[in-house]
Design a binder for these strands. Structure first.
Lengths: 336, 336
DNA sequence: TTGATATCTGTAAGCGCTTTCATTATTATC
DNA sequence: GATAATAATGAAAGCGCTTACAGATATCAA
């Protein structure tokens, strides 16, 4: 069943060192022995065990992407970028999914302590500056994607700026009753986006109106879910006066909002956030973030750092881009 | 930086055996020493390394879920079930994502050879009977979810039956020009679903009409993508006579098809497949599969098997359920 | 032939941990 | 106070591998 290097060595009539050399592409083994060993290995399905090898080498050629609740759409594209970059090396990618039931901080600490991987990519894991510092002091190679910390390498998108751009788009078109659909308070990106919305409103001399900030009560995925958007929209439509436009902190909520509008036969311009793949087909205007690119760049940096001893900090900020589609177009051609 | 059990032992003035016992909840250590060790460990951030521990124990409390290209919506829900079940144990879940560029078979073989995990859950990985046999002979604990093999444990959904149900729904309503939107030929589930469609048509005495089977040319994710459905729908709408109803092998393609219909202002009843979360909000009728449940059951079985020596094969087949929503309702109340 | 090089292979030490077994310290029992 | 039983600890082997280092063999110039 489970063969070890000793079994192979015995059957091939060589020492374990030779077997090891065969599997490490070390040149110092004659073609004849190499073939003999490989043949036996193939026959019994032998391959060096990751652990033992990792232990001996103090490196196991695994990098780990740490992501929040996997069914969140956001970082799937980041992962694609990571995957793509890794597949060009001899590293393996393992993915670790932090669960919502336990604080991310303790999960991450435990994970790093185990040292399963040579390096870690944290995607959309939001911790405080102090917590990241502590994690970073564990001395593992790591990169933050979609969060920041002064002492870490990171690739971040400016959430506030994204919301500012979306809000300004509507302001520029003369709207002033602009509503906001937000998510759970505890979500840091949501909070940043709200902030951008408020800030931009004030810059245009508008005092944010409380009832125009809505959020559903469905808490699943920090409120980043369709139903939450649906509920929020219902609240907004129940107002004495409908809002003129809507800024939404995620596409997925915007989709819920759109279905509420459809039910009530109203059309209010809306801009989502994330540019998930579906948005294009739904015609949802949105803020696009360079997720794939961040995945690639982050991975490349991590792999580079793995080689060198200590390298300079890389900290990069991106600005999201407004993608205009039909949900921001006037619906004059339709009767309803 | 990276402390070992020796460092802790030295600083605590005990042997490494004692430190090890502290971290293994072994009762044989006095409260005083336990505290002393734990205190020092906490101070320097020590935790036993996964490898070394795995090597010594020949078990590392990791189970691995192997999934195809991560951006596929299908198995996200399976993963939720897996996650949920595992979080109630002291196991960790690592996820491995097979890449499209290399045959899944060789990736899986390599992965199992490394023995990173104690057990493996293969979700939506489609290999031939013979290939699974070979994989199974590597002697690792494994469960198949959404595929089958006579010598393995598996939890499978009857794809053919699902398509039969969808097709029959339309047949029962008197339609006979029922179209099929399918995906890439190489996709096994897609093929099975097609088969169900053809079979049911014939049982109702209808000879399948070639042009009524459509597929887009966008190959991304084996054709399971919005654009593919969009293109397929365009082909169907270009026919001399529109189909009366559409069976689609995935929700994601059905969404593409719907947007094509919307563009051309037509409404043709359609049933998707998968019941992804968005479908509810779009009102898409679909075939629902018990994905979450399969994730839970599969994981539970795997964990059980990990304990015992050899246990009886568990092979379970599910039938998808037809969920009726607005895309199968007559659109008589709307003008367009 | 001889010694010097180059090529291949084996020996053995370690990687960081767990765990058995032996040893010592402690407590209970009479 | 001696003995047996119990509890806490340490020494050491081993998990499956890599990798210096050294040894063996082959090759070649002189």
């Amino acid at each position: 069943m489970s063969h070890t290097i000793y079994d192979i060595a015995r059957r091939a009539g060589v020492s374990i060192a030779t077997v090891s050399r065969v599997f490490n592409e070390s040149a110092k083994v004659s073609p004849a022995t190499r073939e003999k060993v490989l043949h036996i290995a193939r026959e019994v399905g032998y391959m060096p065990q990751g652990f033992a090898r990792g232990l001996a080498r103090r490196k196991n050629n695994v990098i780990m992407a740490v992501v929040p609740l996997l069914s969140n759409y956001f970082f799937l594209q980041v992962l694609n970028g990571i995957q793509h970059t890794i597949s060009e090396t001899d590293f393996e990618l393992h993915i670790y999914n932090v669960k919502p039931e336990e604080p991310a901080f303790s999960q991450v600490k435990r994970l790093l302590g185990r040292r399963w991987a040579d390096g870690y990519l944290f995607v959309s894991i939001h911790l405080s500056e102090g917590q990241w510092q502590e994690i970073n002091q564990l001395g593992q190679q790591m990169i933050l994607i979609d969060d920041a910390c002064t002492s870490c390498n990171y690739f971040q998108i400016n959430n506030k700026q994204g919301a500012r751009i979306a809000t300004e788009y509507f302001l520029d078109r003369g709207f002033s009753r602009i509503a906001l659909i937000t998510a759970a308070d505890r979500s840091i990106p949501a909070a940043k986006r709200c902030e951008g919305y408020y800030e931009m409103l004030r810059e245009y001399g508008i005092t944010p109106d409380d009832p125009l900030t809505a959020r559903g009560s469905t808490d699943y995925r920090d409120g980043f879910n369709e139903r939450n958007g649906y509920e929020a929209m219902l609240q907004l439509l129940a107002l004495d006066e409908h809002p003129e436009a809507i800024v939404c902190v995620s596409d997925i909520q915007a989709i819920g909002a759109l279905s509420a509008m459809k039910e009530q036969q109203v059309h209010i311009p809306i801009i989502g956030y994330d540019d998930i793949q579906l948005s294009e087909y739904i015609g949802l205007s949105t803020m696009r973030q360079p997720m794939y690119e961040m995945g690639c760049k982050g991975t490349k940096l991590l792999l580079d750092n793995l080689g060198e001893e200590s390298s300079a900090l890389v900290q990069k900020n991106y600005t999201p881009e407004l993608i205009l589609r039909s949900t921001t177009r006037a619906k004059s051609n339709r009767k309803d």
